[in-house]
Computed example of a mutant assay.
Amino acid sequence: MTSERLEAFSDGVLAIIITIMVLELEAPKEYTLEAFFEIVPTFISYLVSFLYVSVYWVTHHQLFKIAEKINGKVLWSNLYLLFWLSVIPFTTGWIGQGNHHTDVVPVVLYGFVLLMSQLSFLLLRNSIIKIHEKKSPIAVHFNRLTMDFACVSIYVIGLSSAFLNTYISMALFLLVGLLKVVELNSISKRIQSIY
């Protein structure tokens, strides 16, 4: 089974996710700095969410660029990832409305969705690695257990710290996104050296 249809479908879903998120952004109703500062939490939540969706899109592209085969488990794992990514606009919008960025429940739900996105991507990646040889390029370049453990640990700390301070949680979620960008850059360089 080839991956072209899976990639095309995934690209479409991710494009819709970004479109929904940007439609949630509303311009201030007044032309004052105070009105602008009122929408800053909404913009920051959009920025962090856009970073995440972008990282998953690029990583997904690179993963399937060197995947030689897929199976039914990969298809279902991909849909599981897309489900969690599709919930990001909802949690982004909830955090961005009013002062919900300081409320525990929206921040915990946002972090939980990001954590589940991470875990579902790991499931997808491991499903692909299992149908390839252990020394295949996909297994060598995408099996990053130390970074995986670090990201999951930071998510758990971020979820726990939301009960103390939601700003710490959001900073930790942003940290994971930035770590993913660094990791993605490293993977990109290694893949380009091969292909």
Rank of each mutant, 00 (worst) to 15 (best):
L82H: 00
V156E: 02
L109W: 10
I70W: 03
S10I: 01
S49L: 08
F90N: 10
L179Q: 09
S136D: 15
T102H: 14
N71P: 01
L115A: 14
T32L: 10
K29Q: 08
H100Q: 15
E7G: 04
Y195S: 14
S186N: 12
D148T: 13
H61W: 09
M170H: 09
V140S: 00
E38G: 03
S10K: 00
M147D: 12
S45G: 02
G98A: 09
L164A: 15
T166S: 00
V74Q: 07
E68W: 02
G111T: 04
E24K: 14
H60S: 01
L25W: 07
Y110V: 01
I44D: 09
L25Q: 03
E68N: 09
F173T: 08
L82T: 00
H101M: 10
G96R: 04
L79D: 03
L109F: 12
Y167K: 15
G12C: 12
F142N: 02
S186K: 14
I168H: 03
I95R: 05
T102K: 14
F149Y: 10
E26R: 13
S160K: 04
L184E: 10
Y56L: 02
V108H: 03
I39N: 03
E183V: 00
S161N: 10
L23A: 09
T92V: 04
A162L: 06
I194W: 05
K69N: 11
H60M: 03
D103P: 00
F50K: 03
L25G: 06
L123M: 05
S153M: 13
K73Y: 08
V108K: 10
T92C: 06
P137H: 02
I18K: 01
S136F: 05
E183A: 09
P28V: 04
T146V: 15
V152P: 04
S186Q: 14
G98F: 13
S117R: 03
T19L: 01
N143H: 13
L75H: 11
A150S: 07
F9Y: 13
I131L: 06
K135V: 11
F121D: 02
N143P: 02
F142L: 12
L115C: 11
L109P: 01
I194S: 05
I154P: 07
S117W: 11
I138A: 00
F173C: 05
N78D: 12
F163P: 08
G158P: 08
